[in-house]
Design a protein around this nucleic acid. Structure first.
Lengths: 192, 192
DNA sequence: GCCAGTCTATACCAAAAGGTATAGACTCAA
DNA sequence: TTGAGTCTATACCTTTTGGTATAGACTGGC
């Protein structure tokens, strides 16, 4: 029996199946069969189906948050910071579409307690990245002050909405895609 | 036995449970128990669990689309049309939060074939409403021409993102909420 | 009274769900 | 060599899943 990498292969398979069908629609047996192991192996590593989901999230979220944080660092230029943020996000969406798809499907169930317990802490950190950006830009952009939370909320929704359209193919990432989305976000719909 | 309204009560219960837990997480037995009927009753009216979902969507989508269409009618004033659209949407979100929550949870699974077969036709009509608006505004707003599809796609995502934030309580609908969101959408983030 | 159609409950089905008891194979330190 | 710890498979558990065969109750028209 292949004894190396079973944990990582389970994580990979689970992410893919969860992203395609939704967490609740995938059975642990299906994950094990697709990976080529049996259920005790899965339960040895993750303890439960929920534990498997937690491990899947833990595997990619830190990287995503780090990249968003780095990309959105405010250095006195809001357009530059937003461009960095959008670039980091769209790059991540292109690199790890399965993880983003899973993320979006979990976020869309805000009243499922079990799911929310898993996704909320990560979503909170996501929002904090955006909040930090607007707070850092506050001194030089006084008209944003007091609206940081609203702006972060709307921006997070916008990023996720773009990601969904990219994932289902109804939106294409052209050369100036980031440029246009940042401009539209900052100055409205007339700048396309 | 209560013999009147069982069909409507099943629709109501199913919508509520689907919205809370997600379509896949709810069993037909659970729906029947919560409604106070037995499974043959459900299968008599809807044929299958998928048929029940189809009926749930059919029950509310026409009303939603009609209200969006009416609210967004273009009469030579884009701000007015967008205000009408946003108002119609946010009113609907407030009136039928369960239906909107279900809608969002289904949309977030773009690669689940069974789910997409059910939701796509309605989503297409949703998008067509927005597309019509931008096409009607084209002659007086030449800089929008050629971007109608992109604008409709982004606007649909934005509306759904706001709805999600309203549903999970991270956003509050203040007096000038519609005014501010329309302004921000048209002129950027500096107008709050 | 009777019949057709509509609606519902009892009781059941095979399959799949999440999860586990047990034991065998393997590695590594002592 | 032995023993502890790690990892995996066989075989099994209970509960729930979506779905149904059958039959009874009710309605309306004739």
């Amino acid at each position: 029996m292949k004894t190396t990498g079973n944990r990582e292969q389970l994580l990979t398979t689970a992410l893919q199946l969860f992203a395609e069908q939704g967490y609740a629609s995938v059975g642990v047996q299906e994950i094990c069969s697709a990976t080529g192991v049996t259920k005790p192996t899965l339960y040895h590593y993750f303890g439960s189906k929920d534990g498997l989901l937690a491990a899947v999230l833990e595997a990619d979220y830190p990287d995503l948050l780090g990249r968003l944080n780095t990309g959105s660092t405010y250095r006195g230029d809001l357009v530059q910071a937003l461009t960095g943020l959008f670039t980091a996000w769209f790059d991540f969406v292109a690199e790890r579409p399965d993880f983003v798809a899973l993320q979006l499907s979990l976020i869309a169930l805000p009243r499922n307690p079990g799911i929310q317990a898993q996704i909320s802490p990560w979503q909170k950190q996501f929002r904090d990245v955006l909040l930090n950006l607007f707070q850092a830009a506050g001194p030089q952009h006084g008209n944003l002050i007091g609206h940081e939370a609203l702006l972060a909320s709307a921006l997070q929704g916008l990023l996720q909405a773009y990601a969904l359209d990219l994932l289902n193919g109804s939106l294409m990432r052209s050369d100036d895609f980031v440029y246009k989305t940042v401009k539209q976000y900052m100055y409205g719909i007339y700048v396309l």
